[in-house]
């Protein structure tokens, strides 16, 4: 009897300790979370996480660069020749095989993030061996679809999420 009693007492005591420790840990976590998440983008930054761009003034064969989430985005209005050269490639030969069709929404317009996938430099327009971009840092060549053709970069230039509101405007993000 006596023994049972002690045992019962210990389990009840243990329960209170465990409960308090668990609750304490939960509270500590809830206290630390605001301190951690304050470093995430604040609401004024998030409000700018999508931008609207007017593309009506871009001439054929030209490109503009817009800033989106602190990164340059290339919007290029391709000439029919450039589109042709991008579409005619046999994608099996590519380092990062992607069809031009899945990289654009309208074949005339190419929208890519202008950051070299190698180490984050900004490639230069109209340079390089494939008529697209050339990264001056370590010599990566991109074609007119922004795909990696030569050099150390592992993947094609990233396509951001965007959509056409109408023929003249796109929303990035």
């Amino acid at each position: 009897m006596d023994r049972n009693n002690i045992k019962e007492k210990t389990t009840r005591r243990d329960f209170i300790y465990t409960l308090t420790a668990t609750l304490g840990a939960v509270g500590a976590g809830a206290t630390i979370w605001p301190i951690v998440t304050q470093m995430n983008p604040d609401s004024s930054v998030k409000a700018l996480s999508s931008i609207e761009v007017d593309i009506s003034k871009i001439e054929k064969g030209k490109e503009i660069t817009v800033m989106w989430r602190g990164k340059p985005v290339f919007i290029k209005r391709r000439t029919p020749e450039e589109v042709k050269s991008a579409e005619s490639i046999n994608i099996k030969d590519l380092k990062h095989p992607e069809d031009d069709k899945i990289r654009v929404k309208k074949s005339e317009w190419l929208v890519v993030i202008g950051i070299c996938t190698h180490l984050g430099c900004v490639p230069i327009n109209g340079k390089g061996e494939y008529g697209g971009w050339f990264c001056p840092c370590h010599g990566s060549h991109y074609d007119t679809s922004g795909r990696i053709r030569k050099g150390p970069a592992p993947t094609n230039l990233e396509v951001p999420s965007y959509k056409f509101i109408d023929d003249n405007r796109i929303v990035i993000g």
Partner: peptide, 16 residues
């Protein structure tokens, strides 16, 4: 509410 519960538990433990 949370702190009240924790304080009461802490007080019980201290008493023990």
């Amino acid at each position: 509410i949370y702190l009240l519960i924790l304080t009461i538990l802490g007080f019980i433990i201290k008493k023990k």
